[in-house]
């Protein structure tokens, strides 16, 4: 089969009928379309990352192009068993193949939407929009496309009624928490124009504490957030001081 046609066909199926693609025999679809779906997801997210990196420019363009696909893939890998477990405990029999295909279709579709939104975002970033507005627009875009991806996963996976709603709500909660923390760990995506470029910042605090601090700041209270190293991957303070 012609590779170009295959990619375009898969893109068309993702946009027009993702449920039809995801409801077929999971093993066969994963064999036939799995690599193409992964390629679409990674390439689309990389394009979007490149556009996000244009806000700072330079090396950040490359860094963001690498990190955005990771933001789309890492949470999916981490939460795949949880998605299956939540469905099974709600009485919906699904195997790993079905869940993997549904998640891959949802992931590729949402990443494709990110790539579609890229020109508008680039236009906005190119007129030197305020840093905080740039962050807000980025978060809004990622949230919107993520919601579409989760809705696609919910539609592709079998089940019906209240149990399906419950299973998908739990799955969305788990995926949402891990995506949020992954975004925090992989930051910065939008670097300040005068800031030093870094691939990753030290592992410190967490996205929830940061969000609470932002909410406090929005109400005029600029205290109470201490970004200390946290977690197994955090560099101990003593070592961090020695590092130039």
């Amino acid at each position: 089969m012609d590779r170009k046609t295959s990619v375009l066909d898969t893109c068309a199926a993702l946009i027009r009928d993702p449920v039809g693609l995801g409801r077929q025999d999971a093993r066969r679809v994963l064999h036939d379309h799995g690599p193409v779906l992964l390629l679409i997801a990674m390439a689309s997210a990389a394009i979007f990352g490149g556009v996000v990196g244009t806000y700072r420019g330079g090396l950040q363009l490359l860094y963001a192009s690498i990190k955005l696909p990771l933001l789309w893939v890492v949470p999916v890998l981490v939460t795949l068993p949880a998605v299956r477990a939540f469905h099974r405990v709600c009485g919906i029999e699904v195997n790993y193949g079905q869940v993997a295909l549904a998640v891959l279709v949802g992931c590729a579709r949402s990443a494709l939407l990110l790539a579609v939104a890229s020109p508008a975002l680039w236009l906005l970033f190119s007129v030197n929009v305020d840093y905080h507005w740039a962050i807000l627009v980025l978060c809004g875009t990622v949230l919107a496309s993520g919601a579409v991806g989760l809705a696609t996963v919910a539609r592709v996976l079998p089940g019906s009624g209240a149990t399906k709603v419950l299973a998908n709500t739990l799955a969305a909660l788990a995926v949402g928490v891990v995506v949020a923390q992954s975004g925090w760990v992989l930051r910065p995506f939008v670097a300040r124009p005068r800031a030093d470029v870094a691939f990753l910042r030290p592992v410190e605090s967490n996205v929830f504490a940061s969000t609470m601090a932002s909410l406090r700041s929005a109400r005029g209270r600029y205290d109470g957030w201490d970004a200390r190293p946290e977690g197994l991957l955090a560099t101990p303070p003593a070592l961090a001081k020695e590092t130039p």
Partner: peptide, 19 residues
């Protein structure tokens, strides 16, 4: 099965946060 399913996500959160 739920415990086994959420274990990877728990490990990820523990590795990257102090929560």
């Amino acid at each position: 099965s739920v415990a086994m399913g959420i274990a990877p996500a728990a490990l990820f959160l523990v590795a990257t946060t102090g929560l």
